[in-house]
Design a binder for these strands. Structure first.
Lengths: 147, 147
DNA sequence: TTAACTAATGAAAATATTTTTCATTGGGGT
DNA sequence: ACCCCAATGAAAAATATTTTCATTAGTTAA
C-alpha cells in the first residue's frame, strides 16, 4: 500500500503531465507495488484490483499501465507467454536488470545488471551504435526444476 | 533458392519426423532463405510466397514456420512490433547471436555472440541455473540515425 | 462551494494476430 | 495404382489489445 506521501508524489507527477489522480489509478499502482517481483499481466492486475475497485474495467487497466510506462514508472516485458508483463522500474539503475526464465516451470528470477558494460562498450565502438537500454533474458532450467 | 541437394536434405529431415515435403513448405523455406537477415513476419512471408504459390493460405505459413521452429531450422524473435519474426538458425553456434534494435528507424542489426560466456558461467554458479540459450537485445540508435 | 472544463471511465465494439476446425487434397510408401 | 493419413485452404474461433462513445468525476478558478 502506498503511503500518503507516496500518493502525494504520484499525484504530483501526474499533475505535471496534465493527468489526474483517480481511485482506479491509485488502486492499480498499489496492486503492482504489493506484487513487486511477480511481473503481473494486465489481466492479472485486473483480477487483483477488482477486489479493491469492483467496478473497474479491463480497458482502464490497459490504459493505466501504458500511462505508467510512459511516465517511466513501469517497464513492459515480453516473456513469450502471450501477454505483456510489467515490473516497477528501479530508480537506482538506468539499465534494466536481466531475467532468468525457466523453460520448465516458467518462473522468472531477476539478476543484477552486471558485466554487460564491457560488451556494450565494445558494441558501441565496433558498430557505431548508441545503446540506451538492453533486454537480456537467459532461458534454461532453475534450481528447483533441475532436481 | 535451395539447390537440389538442399531440397533433398530438407526432405530427409522432414521424413525423419514423419512430415511430408510439400510445394508450400519448400516455397516458404525458399522465401526465408532468400531474405536472410530480414527477419520476416508470417504475414510478410505470406506476401512473398504468394508470388510462387498464389493459392497458399496464411494458416499454412503459420503452421510451417512453427514446424520449422520445432525442427530447429528457424528461430522465433520478438522485437515488440506486434508480430513474431523469424530468422534462420546458424548451425555454427549453439547460442543465438545478439541484436541491435534502432529505436528510431527500427532496423535490426546482428551482432556476434560474444563475451556472454563469462556472464553465463557466473550466473550458472551464483543462481544455480542451467542456461540453454539467451535472448539479448540492445536498444538504441544506429549509425545512420545518429547523424 | 460551486461551476466549468475536460480528462478518465466502463461497456461494448473493433482490431490484429494467431490458432483451430473441418472438409478436401495430395505425398509417399506399399 | 492404391491407400493412408498428413497437409492444405477457407472460414470460424480464440486471444490480447485498442478504440469508440456516452457518461462520470477530478481539478482549477471564480
Amino acid at each position: 500500500m502506498m503511503t500518503k506521501e507516496e500518493t502525494e508524489k504520484f499525484k504530483q507527477e501526474l499533475k505535471e503531465r496534465g493527468y489526474k489522480l483517480t481511485p482506479q489509478r491509485r488502486a492499480i499502482l498499489n496492486v503492482i507495488i504489493e506484487n513487486e517481483g511477480r511481473h503481473l499481466s494486465p489481466e492479472e492486475i485486473y483480477e487483483f484490483v477488482k477486489k479493491e475497485c469492483p467496478e473497474i474495467g479491463l480497458a482502464t487497466v490497459y490504459r493505466t499501465v501504458q500511462l505508467l510506462e510512459k511516465m517511466g514508472v513501469l517497464y513492459r516485458m515480453n516473456f513469450d507467454d502471450g501477454v505483456s508483463r510489467y515490473e516497477l522500474v528501479k530508480n537506482t539503475a538506468d539499465h534494466q536488470h536481466h531475467h532468468l526464465v525457466c523453460l520448465k516451470c516458467g518462473s522468472i528470477e531477476e539478476v543484477e545488471d552486471d558485466l554487460l558494460e564491457v560488451l556494450e562498450d565494445k558494441i558501441a565502438q565496433k558498430y557505431d551504435f548508441f545503446i540506451k537500454n538492453h533486454d537480456v533474458k537467459f532461458y534454461g532450467f532453475c534450481k528447483k526444476c533441475r532436481k
